[in-house]
């Protein structure tokens, strides 16, 4: 089995390097931009995937997405800090810290109550942001020009490529680490907790603590994703970063991707982004119809999400997914 896990790591590495190379040498800028946004969101979805495997769905992870985004944006506006090696870790840590504190409460809840409690928390943040002028109110504000080790650029194409490579690198690292985590003893306590908390307790481990840990992890990853999204879009506002619709999108992409692999969120996210772009062009008033219809189709006919289709196709050709 150790061999297989190495193979997955290898597969992830090959995949991300291939996307990075394609991006730099082949793909047009508009697609690069789409991948940038998609992978930013995918970081958050990886966090939700860990929760989903544990049997938990949060309708309020926009809380952490927004915390990450606003941490990055506020560091720039209030302190003039655009250094990504400061802003992104800060975004991750801020979300992880809030996740750690709220985790003491949410870990007592399951199913709908877990989902709704998270929704309530996220809407409180939304309400505060909308009504606070100092935090930009409904309009939000711009994000400081990002720099890496103090180096920045005004060339839009160079900046896009740099951000794209950055999201690929962080995406790869996240995927590999989370994959390793899922293969650990603690990682096996995802589906195990979902299946039977009583047995987990009677094997000598606290299900609540296991859930708490995964919650913090998902909060941190969602904060990282939100931080990257803020840098990618160059702007933060409550509607596009913290509202419940953002939580809904994260959950939708999680379901669309499927729980099968840590690579799935990146693929699912990209499909979501492309779908949205084309849907707006082709059928401007049917975006919700498409999202809702897709959700129903997946729940009824494709519970494994897009990943299950890909792995089945790959399996038929005898290729390791």
């Amino acid at each position: 089995m150790a061999l297989t896990s190495d193979r997955t790591t290898l597969g992830l590495t090959v995949g991300f390097v291939a996307v990075a190379l394609l991006g730099v040498f082949v793909l047009p800028d508009w697609l690069l931009n789409q991948i940038l946004v998609a992978f930013s969101r995918a970081l958050a979805v990886v966090g939700l995937l860990v929760l989903w495997r544990t049997g938990l769905v949060s309708f309020g992870h926009a809380l952490y997405f927004g915390l990450g985004a606003y941490t990055v944006a506020l560091l720039g506006r209030n302190y003039g800090i655009g250094e990504v090696l400061v802003t992104l870790p800060a975004a991750t840590l801020a979300s992880a810290l809030v996740g750690f504190l709220l985790g003491f409460i949410v870990r007592r809840y399951r199913e709908i109550f877990f989902a709704m409690l998270n929704l309530a928390f996220s809407m409180v943040l939304f309400g505060i942001l909308v009504k606070t002028e100092a935090l930009g109110s409904t309009d939000g504000f711009n994000v400081e020009q990002p720099t890496l080790l103090g180096i920045g650029t005004d060339d839009a194409a160079v900046k896009l490529t740099a951000l794209f490579l950055g999201v690929c690198a962080i995406g790869w690292l996240t995927a590999v680490l989370v994959h390793r985590y899922l293969g650990s003893i603690l990682g096996s306590l995802t589906t195990a907790v979902r299946d039977n908390e009583i047995r987990v307790e009677y094997l000598g481990y606290s299900a609540a603590e296991a859930i708490h840990g995964k919650y913090v992890m998902s909060a941190a990853l969602t904060g990282l994703g939100g931080g990257f999204m803020a840098i990618s879009l160059g702007q933060v506002d409550p509607e596009s970063m913290v509202n419940w619709t953002v939580s809904g999108e994260l959950v939708f992409v999680t379901i669309l991707s499927g729980p099968g692999s840590v690579a799935a969120p990146f693929i699912g996210s990209l499909i979501f982004e492309l779908l949205r772009t084309y849907a707006f062009e082709l059928v401007p008033y049917a975006w919700q119809l498409i999202v809702g219809g897709t959700l129903l189709l997946i729940i009824f006919f494709l519970p494994g999400g897009v990943w299950s289709v890909l792995s089945r196709l790959a399996g038929r050709r005898g290729v390791e997914p």
Binding site: M1, A2, S5, R180, Y181, G183, S184, I185, L186, G187, S188, L189, A192, V200, L203, G204, Y205
Partner: peptide, 18 residues
């Protein structure tokens, strides 16, 4: 999984299961 939990102490839970 049962063996893994029985074996794990502290940060040992982050070691591979298999």
């Amino acid at each position: 999984i049962a063996l893994g939990i029985a074996d794990a102490h502290g940060l040992g839970v982050l070691l591979p299961l298999r």
